[in-house]
Design a protein around this nucleic acid. Structure first.
Lengths: 234, 234, 234, 234
DNA sequence: CATGAATGAGCTTTCATTCAT
DNA sequence: GATGAATGAAAGCTCATTCAT
């Protein structure tokens, strides 16, 4: 079963019925979503005023409500539109990867950075986490469209490593977070403390490099057992 | 230099001059801080109404403002009071640890869970990250009193491992995040998506167990080089 | 009919029934009235907080309400107590005056300054005028106890001048204000604009001197007619 | 030097830079200023609720804050706008007056009544005096734009009388108040005690007539000296 | 008597949302 | 479609007043 097959069941493709309607909405007010994303990420949902969003998008306050019934709907649209199918996009690249799983994993992590982490969309993680309890449906949407597919993608990679004897046996349900946690942490950091003091900033490349290095070594076959053999004596 | 020594410069002890005066005020309205912490973590600063906090603490709206000049001051007090000197407390335990650094690291991670992660205080991470850009001073306070000391604590442990030949050479500035990121991620998860759907919940023990296992193996000496030796052929 | 006789009908002597009760209240909380007078005059009724008054009087907030049922009652007490029987006091002095009415009038004006204008009680005019429409009963009280008697006192003096042929015939109902207006104006000025900028301050003695001089000359018998006779030719 | 020349330095003309922008805003909400003036004069600043002002102006609470950042700003706008250049307007009329200074002075006093005293603007005196210590800047503004020019205007008239030999030598710094005090007293009376009881009301014409008569006679040349000559003996 | 912590009605101010133009 | 003036519900905060100590 290809990785794509593993994912296609879970990923609920964006509702096609609404697609056309949504498409028209995005024609002009795509700028509204952009503006809203920025402001929501930076200030939070409640602290962002509808008028600010409109102003940043270069339209009037009234226009915003022409395209979005309410501030909440705007928020949901921001999340839904921004999330898009990030995972699916990255999927193809990962799937077509040919080579050792170690490199595949590293590749996936850096690809994520290029595709998502280094994008405006990166703020979504922070946004969703911050507002999850105020927008439960949205949290579920995020669960279904980002978390689950992402988890499966990582899991598929790790499983590939195990299947090919490269990686040792892992508790898959939790091992995936060894990849996910550092990446999500990075985006949240970038949009919170990292944005406040210069000293708190992290260099993304070095950061991912370090994390990938440790994770990869941490899942390699035999390394744990070897450590018990006291390799120093070799 | 002991680990404690490494930390004592950065950790700014709570101002003792005001402590007594403040202490009396907080005798009763400590409940206000408790209530506020819960609500701020769950709903965010802006979405939490002052009256809710008061009600949850069992007092009237007016009483809240008797003890905190404004909602913002309440927020800051929540963060400052809750943070306390978590790190310092954990410090003693870690410092007195005698044994292999592998176990020390695992111990530290679990200890953190008991001391902080499994506490009401755990929501602070989420809170600070969510509101950092709206409360820059608070972000800096968190930096100085939690992030920096925590980073130094982890760094000290890792360095111990390296010094004793247990761990391989690491890019310390980033390696520390291999320990920090999964833990912070856990608390944020717990207070956001994890609180929404049952399926998204993580078992903390298993989670930390898995993370610790992979990290520890990822930093062990010789494992990386061994991987290049293609151990499969042995 | 003596001047005293002219007044005794209008001046309602302070209610003797309540006197004893009031007396006890004044024992300690006289300081409350003092403090309240100052603050009410300076900031107005609404802008003065009960706690401020208490603090200035050196007692606790609760004590204030021990002596005055409400802030309004405090206000009314301030006015009633402060007004006292200023006019009556001045009355005796004026009545026993023996000499030309010109000097009597001047004497009355300066006496008022010593007895009232230069006293804490002087703020009452400003206070009553500022708050009259919010405290109609008090306005009437002031009418009956200050305005009317004062008007009669002045009228009596002027009438004396007319009767003795010193003053020309005057429209008494309005002529009295030639004496009253400048004096009331002085106190209001002193407690409003005069308290703000140094340059706006008036020297009371010089001010009254000038006013009295012009008024006195303005009411003298023959002077108007004489002026038409072109006295320059004499 | 013409009277106008004497004044032009002190009267600061309303800022023309902002005028146009402000003007548009006030096109409609001029009614807000009208409503606010009435209420502030009647009840004082603190006792007037923003909602009352809005209601009286026929708009909603929110609309008021659309045009005035705060209740205080509304208050200041009321004073500044209402004051306008009352004095300057009256100036032209007085300046072009040709005839005896006695009549000029009387004319000025009655003109003031028509132009200001009998207008909504008349409440400003009471308002400013009542709230001066709470709004020091405003008090200064009033000083500069009303008090000083008014004083100079009166002084100019009196000086004209002296220069032409109609009036005797006067202590000008205080003599001006013989004109000002009765007029200001009249407006304050009208908006405080005069508004409470019918019996306390003054007929403005008669009042001014009487005041003017006495003042004018009080400043005529030779009358003071004559009084020392003991004219009774003639 | 005196205190001051606690209350809650009431006020200022904000801001999402509407709608006439 | 687009605007932005107008709305009014809702939230933060104040302060006169009460009452247990």
């Amino acid at each position: 079963m290809s990785i794509k097959d593993m994912l296609c069941n879970t990923v609920c493709p964006v509702d096609n019925a609404r697609a056309k309607h949504v498409r028209r909405k995005e024609a002009r007010p795509g700028e509204l979503l952009d503006a809203a994303l920025d402001l929501f990420v930076a200030k939070g949902f409640a602290a962002t005023r509808a008028e600010e969003v409109a102003a940043k998008a270069g339209v009037s306050k009234g226009t915003l409500f022409l395209y979005f019934k309410s501030k909440e709907e705007l928020f949901e649209a921001v999340v839904r539109e921004t999330i898009g199918n990030q995972i699916n996009q990255g999927l193809a690249e990962v799937e077509s990867f040919d080579g050792e799983t170690i490199d595949m994993l590293k590749f996936a992590m850096f690809a994520w950075w290029e595709r998502v982490g280094n994008t405006k969309a990166s703020g979504i993680s922070k946004l969703v986490m911050s507002e999850a309890s105020n927008f439960p449906e949205l949290a579920n949407f995020y669960q279904d469209n980002v978390v689950k597919p992402g988890r499966l993608l990582i899991r598929a990679i790790l499983q590939r490593g195990v299947d090919r004897g490269e990686f040792r046996t892992l508790n898959m349900d939790y091992a995936v977070y060894s990849v996910i946690a550092p990446l999500i942490f990075l985006t949240m950091w970038k949009h919170s403390l990292g944005a406040c003091s210069v000293e708190a900033q992290l260099d993304p490349k070095d950061y991912i490099d370090s994390q990938a290095d440790i994770i990869v070594n941490g899942v390699l076959a035999y390394s744990p057992s070897l450590s018990h053999l006291n390799l120093n004596s070799i």
